[in-house]
Design a protein around this nucleic acid. Structure first.
Length: 279
DNA sequence: AATCTTAGCAACCGCGGAACG
DNA sequence: ACGTTCCGCGGTTGCTAAGAT
């Protein structure tokens, strides 16, 4: 006794959406101040689609807040690092990139970023070096890394909260400080994942949603590094990135550049145990 | 110019979990 | 507590355009 079929067998349309269908869907949602029940929407709007298809079309394409165009270098880097923490949780990653959809990020990952990691000799799932990711002895290393990163996270969070309590207006300031950035991240799903890892770590188990192996130095160092510093290092570590950043086809060009060890330098930036980067 | 290959992207499918009766 | 329905997510597929041969 399986689930009822969603839309196939019902004579509903599948495949690419036409401009007319888009218009009907957008008009309906605008007119009703929201989509309401996706399941009943197609009928009410007069569309020969299933609710699922409508939802997908809306969330991935028609939503007014969708950011169109290529990913910036910053976005790509952020995705890489978030993936190191969250794994294939595209929706969670997308929540950190306003205007980007999970589908879009997933596509970017599968077409560019994954290859880039492989090219660098890193396992795209664990972000660990391909050779050592199979080495059981790396568990201890990964665990100690995560502990250090945890401390960095916590320090960054405390500092950010202290700053926020001193200057509450900062939170609404568009020119946010890096500490505020940490605070937002900490309070987001990303931070939650990190806390989950720490929790299970304390219990002496690795049954967290994210394996310790996935918490590479690579990943967490990104957050422990001043984002501004990372940007400043671009010329050094993302060789030729200026050209790439201004080029919408950056991804394909980066494929070659990414094999350069300079990218590795960014991703394996040494862990900074003092929190001076917050200054 | 024709054909083949590859990359990029939109859309579909099925599963799991939340909500509800 | 249990069954059903709905929604959201992640994996996968398939179409199209661009590039290579």
């Amino acid at each position: 006794m399986g689930r009822k079929p969603c839309c196939d067998k019902m004579g509903l349309k599948k495949g690419p959406w036409t401009a007319e269908e888009d218009e009907i869907l957008v008009n309906y949602i605008n007119k009703n101040g929201g989509h309401g029940s996706w399941r009943s929407l197609p009928k009410l709007a007069g569309l020969l689609r299933c609710g699922k298809s409508c939802r997908l079309r809306w969330t991935n394409y028609l939503r007014p807040d969708i950011k169109r165009g290529s990913f910036t270098l910053e976005e790509e880097k952020l995705i890489m690092q978030l993936h190191g923490i969250l794994g294939n949780r595209w929706a969670a990653i997308a929540s950190q990139l306003p205007g980007r959809t999970d589908n879009e990020i997933k596509n970017l990952w599968n077409t560019h970023l994954k290859k880039r990691l492989i090219c660098m000799g890193l396992d795209p799932q664990t972000h660990q070096p391909l050779s050592s990711s199979r080495n059981p002895n790396d568990k201890a290393h990964a665990a100690s890394s995560s502990t250090r990163h945890m401390a960095q996270w916590e320090s960054a969070r405390l500092e950010a909260e202290a700053r926020l309590s001193r200057d509450p207006h900062l939170f609404n300031n568009t020119n946010k400080t890096d500490s505020d950035y940490f605070l937002r991240m900490w309070n987001s799903e990303v931070g939650q994942s990190f806390r989950d890892v720490h929790k299970s770590d304390n219990k002496g188990s690795c049954q967290s949603p994210i394996s310790l192996g996935s918490l590479s130095a690579t990943t967490t160092t990104y957050f422990a590094s001043n984002p501004a510093n990372v940007v400043a290092k671009e010329d050094l570590v993302w060789g030729g990135s200026k050209k790439i950043a201004s080029d919408s086809s950056s991804s394909s060009e980066l494929e070659e550049d990414s094999c350069d060890t300079s990218l590795q330098l960014l991703l394996d930036f040494p862990i900074n145990n003092d929190m001076s980067f917050l200054e």
